[in-house]
């Protein structure tokens, strides 16, 4: 992992390129100790909060994944050590692998749609007039601010079999006969609805963050590129994208992490009783933990989920770590 930079931990990224010897010497002598300690001091409060709250529960979670931890053990606060049996039973479960596959595919679709649509809307915000922009951003925040439980209820109504606006509108628009159409009878259309719901809910965050990032891009650079005769797409690719890369990397990895854990939308929409066609990994883990009361198994699934997500975000993770070094 990272070592101390040769010239000492003091040199800031910007500084190291900015070699004014005298300036540097002065700083070394005056602030040397302070500079070594500085990053740790800056990091300490956040690290302390996360450490104090999460260290023990994380340890407990991993430990539980090696234990038989059912309701009986839960009440007595004592699991029974069973080695890797929980993991073995997960990996030998054909259902589990179907769930994994389903979750991966679903995440991939949701993340790509979210990123593309979110970025498109952020770019659109730059093009529209002020009134439209404020309306649109406020609209995005409205969507974002809707509590998930309420949003899911609203969507459930919109696609309701009997009273849904979706069926009514599609029928009126002559897309086909959608009177009493049951979107969840077929898992494909069911997941179609979930994809829309999740992408719809995730767009505001991506769009607003990307837009915030776009506001950071110096106008001079864009103008210079335009004067050079670059077409808008080229400007975006050559100027904007590289500058916003750290933000895109973050957004993509976060979207992967969040969509991989999708739970509440499916859970609430299907009345807390999704049929097994609709299990995603998070639902599977919750089901094993709280419905079957096999907390050990649930913990093991959670651990496996984390490993999968690390694998899925590895590319981004490396990019991200590199992003810090480039300067």
């Amino acid at each position: 992992m990272s070592r101390l930079a040769p010239e000492g931990a003091v040199a800031s990224v910007a500084e190291s390129e900015f070699t004014l010897a005298s300036r540097r010497r002065r700083r070394f002598t005056r602030h040397r100790l302070g500079h070594i300690a500085a990053p740790y001091a800056l990091l300490a409060p956040a690290a302390a909060v996360i450490g104090v709250i999460l260290a023990y529960p994380m340890y407990q979670l991993v430990r539980m994944s090696f234990q038989k931890y059912g309701l009986f053990e839960l009440i007595r606060h004592k699991g029974r050590w069973i080695g890797t049996a929980n993991y073995a039973s997960i990996f030998n479960d054909a259902e589990f692998w179907r769930v994994v596959l389903r979750t991966v595919a679903f995440t991939a679709v949701c993340v790509s749609l979210t990123m593309v649509a979110g970025t498109a809307i952020a770019l659109l915000l730059l093009q529209v007039s002020r009134v439209v922009r404020i309306a649109l951003t406020t609209g995005l925040v409205l969507v974002w601010s809707m509590p998930v439980i309420v949003a899911v209820d609203i969507w459930r109504w919109m696609v309701d079999y009997e009273f849904g606006v979706a069926n009514w509108t599609l029928t009126k628009l002559h897309v086909g006969n959608f009177v009493r159409h049951d979107w969840f009878a077929n898992p494909w259309t069911g997941f179609g609805v979930f994809t829309l719901l999740i992408v719809w809910g995730a767009i505001p965050f991506v769009a607003i963050t990307v837009y915030a990032g776009l506001a950071q891009v110096p106008q001079e650079l864009l103008e210079a590129a335009e004067i050079d005769g670059a077409r808008p797409w080229a400007v975006f690719r050559e100027v904007t994208l590289p500058l916003l890369k750290p933000i895109f990397v973050i957004l993509t990895s976060l979207s992967i992490i969040w969509d991989f854990q999708v739970f509440q939308q499916i859970w609430v929409m299907l009345d807390a009783r999704p049929t097994s066609d609709y299990y995603t990994m998070a639902i599977y883990a919750f089901h094993q933990s709280f419905q079957i009361s096999e907390y050990g198994l649930g913990a093991a699934i959670a651990v496996v989920m984390v490993l999968f997500m690390f694998a899925a975000t590895l590319v981004y993770l490396r990019q991200m770590l590199k992003a810090g070094e480039v300067h």
Binding site: D160, Y161, F163, R180, D182, F184, A185, D271, R273
Partner: peptide, 10 residues
């Protein structure tokens, strides 16, 4: 009635 919902929703 819907073949995939229960008695509570709607």
């Amino acid at each position: 009635a819907s073949r995939t919902t229960d008695e509570a929703n709607p």
